[in-house]
Write a protein that binds this DNA or RNA. Structure first.
Lengths: 203, 203, 203, 203
DNA sequence: AATGAATGAGCCTTCATTCAT
DNA sequence: AATGAATGAAGGCTCATTCAT
């Protein structure tokens, strides 16, 4: 289903726009935002320089289009996985599992998304921060419910949520840089246990 | 003591090199890596453009020199604080407390250091990762000992250490962006408890 | 009559060509030669970009077509008004009055025509000069007759004619730039008197 | 004296800035504002592209620097020549004679200055209009005095002044385009007589 | 050691014009 | 006849780095 959905998103784009965005993904991934030239993207997409501007207003818009795509895909996956969960513990776990699994499928892209560069184009950085902020908010809501239900002790919800997401974010960054990484599901399992304990869930 | 130590680091540099690096800290902090020009750094340091190249090979080296300085200062502070601690729990807590307190004193600089920009100079990002890697290693050693001593259950040490550092890293990033942030010691206390529970320390 | 005539000019063009030229008038008037894009003209004319090139060889030809139209309209008007005049004095006066009145009706268009821009397309400037050259020739003929008839003293005919036209040209430019301009007929009256005196007509 | 003065102005500029401005004069003259590229100016000046920006903020500033130079030279010459005149008639004549003679010495430059292009860079056009406006103001002052002194009948001073300048402006433009032009002093003599008659001066 | 003028590659973006449909 | 997507040259400007003084 999610596959279909994200496919729908992609189908809206012409083959050419797809080619451009895909080329951009590659180049941005390899050289960063400032290190990427439109000319190179065009070359890699097999179109003329000007053609890029037929589909995307400018460099920033091109970059954001990519971020948006990843962003939306990940969030859709999270929502989908959470629906399968029955209790709070599983929801929390499912959220992070979905995020990691989705990003884990495209290591290069993930690397791009997870390396914010606020350089000179401040909006870019802001845009990138959104994803984790949304995740944090999701977790905060879960925690508030869990506390109210007496499943975990009262605590600083924001801090706890940021810490929660932080373990996954950081571990995932670490995982991205490893040459022969461990299976992601192992990461998910371990971190889930770690965080649930940290939050004060009792067996 | 720590003051002396970090002063030692600084003493190695000539007054002019100091002036250049300090100016660079300011400008990089204000405009980011790509947004910063050598000319502006030179102007702010009160030297000619060419003089910068007498002391630092190039822009990247200049940036790295700053990272190194922060890096070293933070690590020295961590080592110092750890020596005060008597048991594993306190050592772990002291490590993170020292890191956060030191970076917290210079929010702007911290923001610079903690916003990796792999733009155009991918090595910069790599360099920045070093700091957290070292922290992770420190924590790994602590965990290995704690497990051996039976204070916490056996677990994936690397993953746990990365998660541990991740909570602090991420929370601190979040803290940096807040307009009126909570006291850092509150963050330290809360996260310490979170992580110690997560690691499986028993009261 | 003049209406009919200038209509004849316009009738030669297909409705589509008319639409394009009219759109071009608008856009050139608003943004100048270099500031105008063919795409915008096409959009405003309700046709596709390529269609413009079906009717006009290129941008320069399009611009010249407009100049030609204004040019021809003004000249027709001059000829018509001159026919009403009985003597040389009135003919000279009628010539300029017709020119000014006609251009004065479309201040924007006049501004476009009267601001030669030799930019990049030097021929454009040349084309624009034609109008005044033709006016000068008309005046020269009148002066030659007037001298032969003994109405004015012998003099450098070309220079006098250029000066004559120059007073109107310059005054009219000045008038175009004024926010609340005086009535054109006042300009015509004043300048006519000025020039007739200058030429040596006696009361 | 005037020669010295304008020389002083030029001495202030380094040899390189002079070379750049002179090259710019050539290229702007040949291809107009929009048709001129900084690269070509640099090439012609024998410097690198970036060097141009060491001396002039940008293309517009470079263009204006040229206009300013001509502008100042011409006005200085006018002031100087007017001081030699004893009466109103001679002052008026001297003003225009000075302007024409000065511009006449550099036909190419004069062509550049006298072809306003308000295209896309509106300030450029405004800047160019200044010269004639200043001339008009000078003439207006003279006319006001002449009327008060009873030397000429009351009339619309602004219109008369614009017409006055217009004859010279236009005649000069005409002269600039001629391949084998008549001597400028002949133009001055003829136009002076024409205008003085037109204004109503009596022998 | 120090200077800072000079370099020139490289960047994003625009737009007149073409041509396959 | 008409379309409009595609082209790619060209332009102004910046800036890390060098080097003659």
């Amino acid at each position: 289903m999610a596959y279909q959905r994200s496919d729908k998103v992609k189908e809206k784009l012409s083959a050419k726009q797809r080619a451009i965005i895909n080329a951009a993904k590659e180049v941005f991934t390899e050289h960063g935002y400032e290190g990427t030239s439109i000319k190179e993207i065009a070359r890699r997409a097999g179109v003329a320089t000007g053609t890029v501007y037929l589909y995307l207003r400018n460099k920033e818009a091109l970059f954001n289009a990519i971020i948006d795509e990843v962003y939306e895909t990940v969030l859709q996956e999270i929502v989908r996985e959470r629906q399968k969960a029955n209790n709070r513990r599983d929801k929390l776990k499912a959220s992070m599992a979905a995020a990691l699994q989705t990003l884990g499928k495209h290591r290069d892209l993930a690397r791009l998304v997870m390396t914010p560069s606020n350089d000179r184009v401040p909006k870019v950085g802001v845009h990138l921060a959104d994803l984790t902020n949304r995740l944090v908010q999701l977790v905060e809501a879960d925690l508030a419910e869990a506390i109210e239900a007496g499943e975990i002790p009262a605590q600083d919800i924001h801090l706890a949520a940021v810490a929660f997401v932080g373990t996954f974010y950081h571990t995932f960054s670490d995982w991205l840089q490893q040459e022969s990484p461990v299976p992601l599901h192992h990461v998910v399992e371990t971190l889930s246990a770690y965080n649930l304990r940290g939050l004060g869930f009792t067996e």
